[in-house]
Amino acid sequence: MNYEEKLESMGYKLSAQANKRIFEDGVRIGNLIFISGNAAKVDGVLKYQGIVGDTVSMEEAQDAAKIAFVNCLATVRNMMGSLNSIKKIVNIKGYVASTPDFIEQPEVMNEVSAFALEVFGEVGRHSRVSLGASSLPGGTPVEVEIIVEVE
């Protein structure tokens, strides 16, 4: 089973549509691809909106983070033609829109780290950053960006 089939068997579909932004969805430099930040959009619609610790629960934030990660992977697939070209998930950055007293941003992103390992095995072992923010674009509770090494 390839990576995309594995994601689909877990209930995640990779979007084929490109984002309409004034910057690139991803930039390849040598064997590294830097993927721009993605929100938890499903079929182009934000699944969750709000602030973690206020209107968005931990479970919703974790789900949002996984969806945003999958959207990052969709960009890799759209650029490379297949997720099987991924040799390594190098880095994952997660931004969590949260209340000032919410300090569990790493717990939100732990869900993505575990998910990357579940899908990619050792290829999914990565470095990571988890940051809190007062708000994020469009009201998304979580934004994720990644760096991957490809063939």
Score class of each variant (00 low, 15 high):
A116T: 03
R128C: 06
V123S: 13
P106Q: 06
K47Q: 14
S135D: 11
S82K: 06
A18C: 01
T75W: 08
I147R: 07
Y12T: 02
T55E: 15
V144I: 13
I146H: 09
M109Y: 07
V142W: 07
Y3E: 08
I89G: 09
K66N: 03
E59W: 12
R125D: 09
F115R: 06
S130W: 02
H126T: 00
I103K: 10
T140A: 14
G138Y: 04
C72T: 05
Y3V: 11
G124T: 07
F69Q: 04
G11Q: 11
I89F: 08
M79R: 13
E122R: 12
L32F: 15
Q49G: 05
E59M: 14
Q49F: 12
Q17T: 08
E118D: 13
G124E: 01
E4P: 01
N19P: 00
I86P: 12
P141I: 04
I92L: 06
D25C: 09
I92Y: 07
N71V: 03
L73P: 02
G30K: 12
I89Y: 10
L73G: 01
K88N: 11
V148E: 01
T140S: 12
D25L: 02
E4R: 14
G37L: 14
E143W: 00
C72L: 06
F23H: 05
P137E: 09
A61L: 10
L7N: 10
V108H: 04
K93A: 15
S57W: 10
A61K: 10
E8W: 07
D25V: 01
N110K: 14
S130G: 00
A114P: 00
S113T: 03
S134D: 14
A133H: 09
L73H: 05
N38L: 02
D101I: 14
L131Q: 11
G81Y: 04
D25A: 03
P137G: 00
A114M: 13
V90R: 07
D63P: 10
N19G: 09
K87N: 12
E122Q: 11
N2C: 09
E107S: 07
T55W: 13
M79K: 14
L73D: 04
T140V: 01
P141V: 06
L32Y: 15
A18F: 04
Y12L: 03
L32P: 09
N2F: 03
S113D: 06
L83S: 06
E151D: 13
I67F: 04
A18Y: 00
M10Y: 04
G50R: 15
I89V: 13
E149R: 07
K41D: 15
Q62H: 05
E60L: 12
V56L: 15
S98N: 13
G139V: 04
D25S: 09
A39Y: 14
V112C: 01
F102D: 02
A68K: 11
K47C: 07
M10G: 00
L14M: 05
V52G: 10
V56C: 15
G26K: 09
E104R: 11
L14V: 06
G53D: 12
I51Q: 14
A65F: 09
L117E: 12
V142K: 06
G124K: 07
L7T: 09
T75L: 06
G30A: 02
I51E: 13
E8Y: 08
E60K: 15
A97D: 03
I22Q: 07
K87G: 11
Q49W: 10
M79I: 01
V112I: 03
T55N: 15
G139F: 02
A97H: 00
H126R: 10
L46W: 14
A74C: 10
V42H: 10
